[in-house]
Nucleic acid binder design. Sequence first.
DNA 1: TTGTAAGCGTTATCAT
DNA 2: ATGATAACGCTTACAA
Lengths: 335, 335
Amino acid sequence: MSSITIKDLAQKLNLSPSTISKALKDSYEINAETKLRVKEMAKQLKYVPNSYAAGLRKKTSQTIAVIVPNITDAFFAKAIYGIHSAANQNNYNVLIYISSEDYKNEKLFIESLGNGKVDGIIISLSGNNNNHEYIRFTQDEGLPVVLFDCVDFDIDTTKIISDDYTNGIKATEHLLQRGCRNIAYLGISEQVSTDISRREGYKFALEKAHIAFDPELMITYSHNTATNISRIKSVLQNKKPDGLVASIHDLAIAAYYACNELNIKIGQEVKIIGFSNFDAVDLFNPPLTTITQPAFNIGEQAATILIQSLEKKNYTLKNEVITLPSVLYKRASTQ
Amino acid sequence: MSSITIKDLAQKLNLSPSTISKALKDSYEINAETKLRVKEMAKQLKYVPNSYAAGLRKKTSQTIAVIVPNITDAFFAKAIYGIHSAANQNNYNVLIYISSEDYKNEKLFIESLGNGKVDGIIISLSGNNNNHEYIRFTQDEGLPVVLFDCVDFDIDTTKIISDDYTNGIKATEHLLQRGCRNIAYLGISEQVSTDISRREGYKFALEKAHIAFDPELMITYSHNTATNISRIKSVLQNKKPDGLVASIHDLAIAAYYACNELNIKIGQEVKIIGFSNFDAVDLFNPPLTTITQPAFNIGEQAATILIQSLEKKNYTLKNEVITLPSVLYKRASTQ
DNA sequence: TTGTAAGCGTTATCAT
DNA sequence: ATGATAACGCTTACAA
């Protein structure tokens, strides 16, 4: 460890530690010339402040935690990139936690974050559970939490999401416009806010088109790809849908595999639209029509808002929902 | 903040802070019954240790930093997942830094990590620079560094990589076996170790097949996708290669776009093999033949080794290269 | 088996 | 404009 401390600088310059500290912080109390000398010496000796000492004293860590269900989905990877970008600009560090879609991990992580380890938390909920008391508890302790994407609307804080309900409608109506009448919905979980909203949008669009909702056309996500594929295959065989709405990238992939295995022509016999942030869906056979969320921006906003609330004293996060628009990219899978 | 401290527990239980501290750490000095009382009270009051105080005192942060060039390439996303997994199992936290392929960021990050903020660093080099003095300096300060994937073999530490040289050969020979005689190489940068090794492998395979190396068949990566596509198009038009080795996923993608724009049939007229960790390349048109690195394992190993070295005192990281095998998945792009 | 006290490096308050 | 000092919460000799 560098182990150059403020005391070392003080000794070298024949000043007191407190003067050094103030000088490094550009305090108005300190002589301009002294500041210069101090800063130069600091640079020369490669002084790096001990963040633990500062953290202990100031009760702030300049660190935020990010908890995501996974990191390999391009949506979350890009969101983290956005978070990192905003954090970095504001001199915050980012601690990362991956819950692997399990709220038990999420809970453990959150509970370990008390007592100053981080100044705030950004989280996209794992979604296999509805009881978010542990999040409220964290808030009550004074640790601010910002939610994004998979949120719980009952938690009193700022939530950054995409327009999931509208997108559910848009996705379904796009398929309807392309002539589909028998549309299956491939969902994540009934406990994930994004999925609930998209599903509601799906139902609304059907209703508006006077098409009866058929629960047998609903499929739920499993963590096992093979299971997803076989579930989709069985619906394809039993219910002969002519359109599929895949609420996450993984399910769109599984749908492609299922269709391929059954020799069903995607785009002709079955049209597929998927929520996805992967750039290469363009190269799929056929190219996948997507609803693409502004992942980077969502992350960036979440971090910016959290950090703003940290920097202004007595500022508490508004209980509001910020919705960023997604884009529908029409491609050959719904030709 | 929770603000339950050891002192609070001490007061509640009529014990001294040091007894509490020892009890929580399961010290042999403490009566079993006392330990129980302490732990119960701690749980009841949801005591969370202040990691900054402990860190200041013990000079260890139970935190490692990860620096990656980007996070949206599936390779790095999976590597981070592996790192997080190993870290989490060993009760380490993970700070994440994304250099955006620029060593200047990398350098800034590293320089900010001195003085106890982290116990060690795992890094995949950005590669737009060859002078890694800042890494050596960090090591000299006593901060251990483990390199993975994009490494500098001249840095004295443990490096976890994939068998890039062999893979360069394997990729090229696969194309040769499929009848290609005029193979272009789409590279990242002459300063990135992975790319250098793969390129050497490519050259070796050509030589072995008595095919002259043609520098005009080499393309270098730009951060701009459009530039990559146009560079590849111009080689396709001018040099009429019948095979392409893409040393990263992004370049394979660009190659697909280039071929599509020029109406060149991938798999027939030009065969493409790409280094990639994306799961969905199977669905490409045509499916992309890949060399796939064990990304998760690489990350996991890097973290495990770093943490091991941290836990054992007086243990320094060996100056060795650990090579994990990649897999060649043959698909229709090289049919 | 438990308690006392010093100290980690910084900052904030209060002198000088 | 600069300096002395206490305190942040924890750990660890050392003492009891």
